[in-house]
């Protein structure tokens, strides 16, 4: 599978995750979000950018429990809870937000 933007092709795997995370840009993220029926707001970008930073630092996509805790530490308790994150990403913050962020499926996502 692949995403086409302005004649450039971005390869995705059978579950829709971007194959090469270095190819990621905001336009790709918007298309991935559309495919997930997620309408990207500033709150969504905040989580997506947080995930990209986390991956950069630790080389993994965090499990949802870890993501929730880490976001709480960085962005405050009103955002570091699963209700807030599930409202933004109804099909699972780790899974959906990771996909939009161009990361592989989270380790520990069972």
């Amino acid at each position: 599978m692949a995403i086409e933007i302005n004649g450039k092709s971005y390869e995705t795997d059978e579950e829709g995750y971007l194959v090469d995370l270095n190819e990621w840009n905001e336009d790709v993220a918007k298309i991935l979000a559309e495919q997930e029926n997620v309408n990207m707001t500033d709150q969504h970008w905040e989580v997506v950018n947080f995930l990209r930073e986390y991956y950069n630092e630790f080389q993994i996509a965090p499990a949802v429990r870890v993501l929730t805790k880490a976001i709480g530490k960085k962005l405050g308790a009103d955002k570091g809870n699963s209700q807030y994150l599930y409202e933004l990403f109804p099909y699972g913050p780790a899974k959906q937000a990771c996909k939009i962020a161009g990361l592989p499926k989270p380790t520990g996502c069972v």
């Binding site: 630092e57 630790f58 993994i60 965090p62 499990a63 870890v66 805790k69 880490a70 520990g108």
Partner: peptide
Amino acid sequence: PTYRALDDY
């Protein structure tokens, strides 16, 4: 770098 994430887990 992932060993440094163990504490988060």
